[in-house]
C-alpha cells in the first residue's frame, strides 16, 4: 500500500503543478478558470489519498466543500468573461446572425439587462 500511495500522491502532485503552470500561462481568464477547476480537483484527490492511507474519515467533509469550489469559481469567471468584449463588437456579431431567430434568442441571453429588462437576473 505504501508504494501505491506514494506513486498516486506523486502523480496528483505533478498534476497540481501542471495546473499551476496553466493558471500562470493563461492566456485568457477562461483558461485560468479551467486551471483552478483542475487545481481544486487535485486538492480533493490529494486529501482523498491521504485519508485512504491513514483510513481516516474526519477530512471527508472537506472533500464535499472543495468539490463545489471549483464549480462555483469557473461559473463565476465564465459569467464575467462573457462580458469582456465591448458592446458594439458583440452587437455586430449579433446582427450577422439576426436572420436566424433562434440564434438571436441565444445571443440575447447574455446581452446587458437594458435589452431585455423583463427577463434574466
Amino acid at each position: 500500500m505504501t508504494v501505491v500511495v506514494v506513486v498516486a500522491a506523486v502523480m496528483v502532485a505533478v498534476a497540481a503543478l501542471l495546473a499551476l503552470v496553466r493558471i500562470e500561462r493563461g492566456p485568457s481568464m477562461l483558461d485560468r478558470a479551467l486551471g483552478l477547476d483542475l487545481l481544486a480537483a487535485t486538492l480533493v484527490g490529494a486529501i482523498a489519498i491521504e485519508a485512504a492511507w491513514n483510513r481516516r474519515t474526519e477530512t471527508i467533509p472537506i472533500l464535499v466543500a472543495l468539490s463545489l469550489v471549483g464549480f462555483v469559481g469557473s461559473v463565476a469567471i465564465a459569467r464575467f468573461a462573457a462580458r469582456e468584449p465591448s458592446r458594439a463588437e458583440r452587437r455586430a456579431v449579433d446582427d450577422r446572425a439576426a436572420e436566424d431567430r433562434a440564434a438571436d434568442d441565444r445571443a440575447a441571453d447574455d446581452r446587458p439587462a437594458d435589452d431585455r429588462a423583463e427577463e434574466d437576473r
Partner: peptide, 16 residues
C-alpha cells in the same frame, strides 16, 4: 487509487 491518480495526471497533461 492508482488509476484515479493517473487520470488526474492525464487531465493535467491535456490541460497543459
Amino acid at each position: 487509487l492508482l488509476a484515479g491518480a493517473f487520470l488526474t495526471l492525464a487531465a493535467a497533461v491535456g490541460a497543459l
